[in-house]
Amino acid sequence: MNRTIPTSIFAVSLLSLACAHDPSKELVSARRTYETAANGPAAETAKTEVYDAKKALTRAEKAHDRKSGSQEEVDLAYVALRKADYAIAYSTYLQYQSNTEKAKAEYLTTLESQKNNAQDQLADTKDELEAKNKALMAAQAARKALELQLVSALGSLSEMAKIKQEEQRTVITLNGAVLFKSDETQLLPIAKEKLGQVADVLKQYGDQYSITVNGYTDSRGSDVHNQQLSQGRAESVRSFLVSRGVAEGVVSAIGQGEAQPVADNKSAEGRANNRRVEIVVDRIGTPEAK
């Protein structure tokens, strides 16, 4: 018993001594938070603030050394803790500031880049439009020229042919007596000359036209003979047009015989009108500019 009492007193004394030297919870927090600040991004981005926290912590440590657990230690540690918090918060602030500035700069760069791209695209589009306009105008001019040539060529046929023009079709009706001798399929020289002018225009259209040459006879003679004669005359005209450069694939020849008379076969005049060749020109598209 005598030994127990002194031991207890000694233990309590030791405990008291230990408590007397323990740092306040504020100082513990201040040390921990300062370490966080000094070892984090703030050490680089908020050096001054971290240094201020260090100075405040040093003052708190000195107060602790002078009198552990004093109100002065608590107050100074509290300030040190807040300054360490401040350094970390300020570092975060600077990070956001940097992010904002980067984003704003990127916005301007992106805007400028998009503006440049849009201007480039606009310039390209203008160039393309200009080129298309030029091509269109050239095509229109070429078309106009060809139309004039065709009209001119058809005009030369007016003495020997009847011309009927529609929106997409031109029908040239030639009297058989002008083109051929009686009962023959060979074109007369004058016919070749006139048809040559038409061929010169038609060939420039390439495959933009579909041409059908129809041969007709009057009702005299056998049907077989008339069919053969009309077919032969149609073929003759077709061959001539092809020989003058009209695309072979666009011209066809059809012998119609005595079908589809345009006049009464009982009179000589009517039969003369029925002996004919029709050149039907169907326009398919716009000719290419040459």
């Binding site: 916005y107 992106t110 791209n117 849009a118 695209q121």
Partner: peptide
């Protein structure tokens, strides 16, 4: 600010004028 950049980029792609610089 970041949202605005992303929206601008999206608008640029939709308009066919994407920014040529990448960030």
């Amino acid at each position: 600010a970041r949202t605005e950049v992303n929206e601008l980029r999206t608008e640029g792609v939709e308009a066919g004028t994407p920014a040529t610089t990448t960030a």
